[in-house]
Nucleic acid binder design. Structure first.
Lengths: 163, 163
DNA sequence: TGTGAGCGTGTTACTTGATAACAAACCGAC
DNA sequence: GTCGGTTTGTTATCAAGTAACACGCTCACA
């Protein structure tokens, strides 16, 4: 499972339709293995996130669902998003109060996010899993880290060119 | 300005009153140097954050201000908090939609936050300034990082003992 | 072939977080 | 003193997130 040089990130042109289909299939397989239910709404929300390939607010997702006749109440979107996040199919970007589909579902990874402040596209970078950067200092203070997130904001290549 | 072994973090017992007085004095000096105005409201908000030594929502701060007869409108709190954050006297914790006083005002630092999920106390850890961790990977993608934040959640020593 | 437990969804209402827009007051400089 | 910029007062509104409870499906087990 070495980093693949041709792996697609949000910042590189890639066969997007294929990327959606493949990721949904992976999610389906994962759910089957884990006896989770990828219900129509959950599946649709995952697809929507994948289609956009950028951070979307819960209400953005909701309005897509509403447009498709799938319902109009906030909990609808939040519940689906919570499911996706808690099972690793999506991530929450705290800085933006938004959500983005995971680029490597199933893989147990420590994502860091590169967020374009111009177009909101989000790419995942990978932190070397042995890097204990914070861990040592936290341990010295007696603090037990349970989860950590790294979010970097800047300009993506496309917006940089377009400036 | 080397890291001081006796430096106080939110997780260690320390002379809190002194810590407040000293930090406010530092903020005052800094504002004088930079020709910034540490108005009564801004100063009071800083004191409130320092008194708590934990992440506070803007509305928590506002209710303190209101109780003290200083006003009751959200912009009051947000404007003061924006001032404090933009001049380095406080930080915003995205994960919590909350604010915390800066532990090292004036120093140009790259903070990482250790957030106790039990009591919301927040300590700042320091990232080695030469660590380019993300930088290399971002550069390879053509992404220009402008700012980054690291937020770790877990259990602080006090809550860990109390469990 | 129920039936009931657990999960997912529908719905209402609400809390919390954040900002837009404009008016009034303050303050320092010239 | 008066002008310009900053700060504060005020109203209103938008955006994000959740509580609470009812309904209904489905799957296992009797």
């Amino acid at each position: 499972m070495s980093p693949d040089a041709t792996e697609s990130t949000a910042f590189e042109p890639h066969d997007h339709q294929d990327c959606i289909v493949r990721t949904v299939a992976e999610a389906e397989a994962h759910c089957a293995r884990e006896k989770l239910r990828l219900t129509p709404i959950r599946r649709r929300v995952l697809e929507i996130l994948l289609e956009e390939h950028r951070a979307m607010g819960a209400y953005d997702v909701l309005s897509r669902l509403t447009a498709e006749g799938l319902g109009a109440h906030p909990p609808l979107a939040y519940r689906a998003l919570d499911f996706l996040v808690s099972h690793g199919f999506a991530h929450r970007i705290a800085r933006l109060n938004a959500f983005v589909a995971c680029g490597r579902p199933g893989e147990n990874h420590r994502p860091a996010f590169l967020i374009c402040r111009s177009c909101n596209s989000v790419a995942e970078a990978h932190i070397p899993t042995d890097s204990s950067l914070l861990g040592d200092e936290a341990a010295a203070m007696g603090f037990k880290i349970e989860s950590a997130s790294i979010e970097a904001e800047g300009i993506c290549p496309a917006c940089s060119e377009a400036n």
